[in-house]
Design a protein around this nucleic acid. Structure first.
Lengths: 198, 198
DNA sequence: TTTAATTTAATACAGTTGTACTAAATTAAG
DNA sequence: CTTAATTTAGTACAACTGTATTAAATTAAA
């Protein structure tokens, strides 16, 4: 008998508006009132979908990781493709190579700074670290299976290194886009990947 | 005739208390009142040394970079020393290898997230990026001069890569200290440096 | 001791915050 | 059309915010 709204869709809609506010004004300006206004809801409506502000923020952070993971899962390798290219493109799913990915990374950075003092976000941060680490491990192993990458690599250290390069470059490009351009970022990734090839 | 207080020392003292508040409660809790209370001053006293909150925060961020730069400048190379060791230890001045450096990096991360939406912090962020980039460039060139590192390296890309590794690892260790330990961080640095040797 | 500039403390104010609460609006089913 | 649960809007409140103002305290020099 009542009006039926897709709760999940509404939550996602509000979370994406939260991203927008965070990107434009910073996470400390991501107040309930501002998010409500930006998403054309009343404060009461937002509160109807999220019991508290921290629940809203947690959901918004989770949505970032879900989007990245979703894209990663959708990727399929076709036999005709160059494996190195395939791997490079896969890593570019994480890097801020376009506006969409830039927004996700900016939001993620804002939340990451919060992780240090917010225990409830640590679990999510750790999970995402693990997931990406595993993904990159698969990348290196795949290159070895294809007999493209060197066999004598120390897998653990190699993955640590690649993971640090990816996140380090992402941060550098976000914070200093003129000094470390998108093109430099991609060139540096290619340079590194080539360095572990046979 | 008046009481004479060393202004600079007071400002540094208050800025270090600001670090403490940021590390313990996050940058959004770095309010004038809290910083005053934590540093055993009245709000009026703090305001006497900093005309506004943003001036205080800017000074506190600047102090982080000054500390790191100061340590870097103090380092002297003695002929008996192993150049690779010297370089490794130099890079560890930036990495969060001990409590002091951890605090500095945590504060820096908190400010970095603010850089994206605070134009007045961007200049400082860019300057520090440049300084560290130049420092790491000197490192790679020094290793080449000593005929330790490969000559055929692409200097620009190599420095980009090293810089990303350093900051990426710093972030990973801060956010996930159990999953990416201090020892792994140092081992990964050594592994990378070895990889560019002849 | 007197003097005067620096330093400190306390209070006030207007604005914002998260959250709670209530009543109204909406709308799908009977 | 009625009904009733969901959804929305608006308001209220106590706490906290940055900043301004004012008067008091401090203390080195005359």
């Amino acid at each position: 008998m009542p009006k039926k709204v897709d709760h999940q869709k509404r939550k996602i809609q509000i979370a994406e508006t939260t991203w927008k506010v965070i990107v434009e004004e910073g996470i400390e300006q991501a107040t309930v009132r501002k998010i409500a206004q930006a998403s054309d809801f009343s404060v009461g409506a937002v509160r109807h979908y999220f019991a508290s502000q921290s629940e809203l923020l947690h959901f918004s952070m989770e949505l970032v990781s879900e989007r990245v993971m979703q894209r990663a899962k959708e990727r399929k390798f076709s036999k005709e493709q160059n494996p190195l290219e395939f791997v490079t493109e896969g890593i570019c799913e994480i890097l801020p190579v376009d506006e969409e990915r830039k927004i996700e990374m900016e939001v993620w950075l804002a939340f990451s700074a919060k992780v240090l003092v917010d225990k409830t976000l640590q679990e999510l941060s750790n999970k995402v670290y693990q997931d990406i680490h595993q993904g990159l491990k698969n990348v290196v192993q795949a290159l070895q299976l294809f007999e493209i990458a060197k066999k004598e690599l120390d897998l653990g250290l190699e993955v640590n290194r690649l993971h640090a390069i990816v996140d380090g470059m992402a941060m550098h490009h976000l914070l200093n886009p003129e000094q470390f351009t998108r093109e430099e970022m991609i060139a540096t990734l290619n340079y590194h990947l080539k360095s572990i090839l046979q």
